[in-house]
């Protein structure tokens, strides 16, 4: 197998487009839910050393709400939707009309609601990606955690662990008027998924 670590510039651009399409649809979904504009930063695609992956979400000990979906099918991988816990509370108040306390305690009900919101966003991310690539991509049931970014994100790096000390991260960030809009998508395709992804997008793979 060709090493995923030596992707050409145009291949990284193709993956940026993957992030763009996926999170573009997710942003539309969030915007529809909130009835407000949601902006999206230009996707970042790079091979990130394990230690730095958590830095991208605020640092290894930063408390985050993370919704995780394992993607099965033709191009398996891991998908995270990550929110700041304070912002996530605001999102709950706006979206689920839940009476929430402004602290970092989360009830089962609140986490479950966030999991569902993450699931809707991740679902639109993946379905647009599946439409674009014509690949079968099926997400697992979503799982949610409120914990240290390092601990949570390491879960998505295991497939890379046996191959090296870095993972290929497709990162997109939502922003807008209001903290509740802020969130990040981390798509981490399995190392073996790259040839399939590239082929499906018309890139010749040796």
């Amino acid at each position: 197998m060709r090493s995923y670590g030596k992707l050409a510039e145009f291949e990284l651009d193709v993956l940026k487009e993957v992030g763009n399409i996926g999170s573009g649809h997710a942003a539309t979904a969030l915007s529809t839910l909130l009835n407000r504009p949601v902006d999206m930063a230009v996707p970042k695609v790079s091979l990130v050393p394990f230690e730095e992956v958590a830095e991208r979400a605020g640092g290894a000990e930063q408390l985050v709400v993370a919704v995780f979906l394992r993607v099965d099918g033709d191009a398996p991988g891991n998908l995270f939707y990550i929110m700041n816990p304070v912002a996530a509370k605001r999102l709950l108040r706006r979206l689920a009309a839940m009476e929430v306390e402004e602290d970092l305690e989360y009830s089962e009900m609140e986490l479950s609601a966030l999991s569902e919101i993450g699931n809707i966003l991740a679902g639109s991310y993946l379905s647009s990606l599946a439409d674009l690539t014509r690949l079968a991509l099926s997400p697992s049931v979503p799982a949610v955690a409120l914990d240290m970014a390092g601990a949570v994100l390491a879960y998505g790096l295991m497939q890379y662990g046996e191959m090296g000390d870095a993972a290929l991260l497709v990162e997109t960030r939502f922003q807008g008027d209001g903290e509740e809009i802020e969130g990040q998508f981390f798509l981490i395709p399995d190392p073996d998924s790259f040839p399939t992804l590239f082929r499906s997008l018309g890139v010749d793979v040796p």
């Binding site: 230690e51 958590a54 290894a60 000990e61 390092g150 601990a151 390491a154 295991m158």
Partner: peptide
């Protein structure tokens, strides 16, 4: 760091952050 090791001597402390399944 993750997937790393180290040694502490002479009263130093040694730490690692954000252990999940690790």
């Amino acid at each position: 760091a993750m997937a790393d090791l180290g040694v502490a001597v002479r009263g130093e402390c040694i730490r690692t952050t954000g252990l999940g399944s690790c």
